[in-house]
Design a protein around this nucleic acid. Structure first.
Lengths: 210, 210
DNA sequence: AGAGATTCCGAACACAATGTCCAATAGCAA
DNA sequence: TTGCTATTGGACATTGTGTTCGGAATCTCT
């Protein structure tokens, strides 16, 4: 009644051990300072075994990141249905919650460890989603944006990545829900609303209520 | 009447050659794929000479980044005096102009090449400046911000870094002045103003004019 | 539980790159 | 020119990489 054992149990065990070992070591010493032997030693496996599963360190890292993305996307549809869509078409709060659960891996990715490819892909993915969401909504409402949507999308992605990175790296004291709400309010209504500051130092003031 | 030749001319020449070679190679192949021999070959120097000046690749990279920061800070006071202060106390437009002139090095830094320390320091520097500027201004005006200023500073820094990275990596078609203006408007007035979109999908709408 | 298949392991290997040292040479400053 | 300093190529030990192989261990399937 159990279709699970599609692959050898040994494979799963050693791969899991290698992945956890890599994440631990990356957070301790940084990706570049790690040797394959250190990984296998921490994972209690032979060095030859490593090369039976992965081509090199980078390969192991992308495997980890790919699994993380799968895990994230696997639970996404359910969240989408349960709650209303976020303000960008992406459930931002869920990303923060996911990051909270998988904090070590998110740290590794957001630090740009390895060659930084993982972080770049993550960023581009979010940015593409955001721009598409903005664009369809603008078309639906038939309004003409004051600022090009590619710029808006990049800036918003920067806000998200910046806050997310800071949040997983430090104990900020804010919950996932709080950070999400702050990010939404700040991004949607701007700094004038968020801080109560008048834009007196910004040349060429605009009508906020327009 | 010239106090310049404080150091041997040879030193300056080989160091400049090594730095340019590294930047070129990083943009071609990525930092990790480069060997010291490739650098010296490109710079037309002996391999032993490299180690007479730098401990390793990383050391050379931090030297480059340090010089870039010095160059940036050296021209900063003049800009500050000439123009009014930017909306965050940092002349953002000047950063974009500087990045335009030194595009290759900015690319290297913003990609997080090396171990990513350069990018992290750059980010933290900007964020600290921004938060300090926000805080003093809030105290001056004696207003109570709706969103904690550390969150505001991180988000704004994310916007800046995100846009700057995108801008130096792609030919976006926007000038430094245009990007700066967009960043300011979007950040200050928010996405509702920037896109003309009503925040209908954002639960718990706020009063924009407040 | 047993048979067969697969994975794990440790050791050895060739190879690439690192970082150091040295004596000879070339180039700079005064 | 003279003295000083940087550069150079070569040699060297060291470290990490990625591969290969046969025996031992462990899993799956019946």
């Amino acid at each position: 009644m159990d279709m699970k054992p599609a692959v050898d149990r040994r494979i799963l065990r050693t791969r899991a051990a290698l992945r956890q070992a890599l994440v631990e070591l990356v957070l301790e010493k940084g990706f570049h300072a790690i040797t394959v032997e250190e990984i296998t030693e921490r994972a209690d496996t032979g060095r030859a075994t490593f090369y039976a599963h992965y081509r090199d360190k980078e390969d192991l890292l992308v495997g980890i990141v790919r699994d993380l993305a799968e895990d994230r996307d696997r639970l996404l549809p359910a969240v989408r249905q349960a709650h209303a869509e976020g303000f960008t078409g992406l459930p931002v709060k869920y990303i923060f919650e996911h990051a909270e659960r998988e904090k070590p891996v998110y740290r590794v990715v957001l630090r740009g460890e390895g060659d930084g490819r993982a972080l770049r892909e993550f960023t581009d993915l979010i940015c593409a989603h955001a721009e598409a969401a903005f664009r369809t909504r603008v078309e639906q409402l038939a309004v003409t944006p004051r600022i090009p949507l590619d710029v808006v999308a990049r800036a918003w992605t920067g806000e998200l990545i910046g806050l997310l990175t800071w949040w997983v790296e430090n104990d900020t004291g804010y919950s996932a829900a709080e950070i999400t709400a702050h990010l939404r309010d700040l991004s949607v209504y701007g700094r004038v609303w968020a801080t109560g500051l008048a834009p007196s130092d910004a040349p060429g003031a605009h009508d906020v209520t327009a």
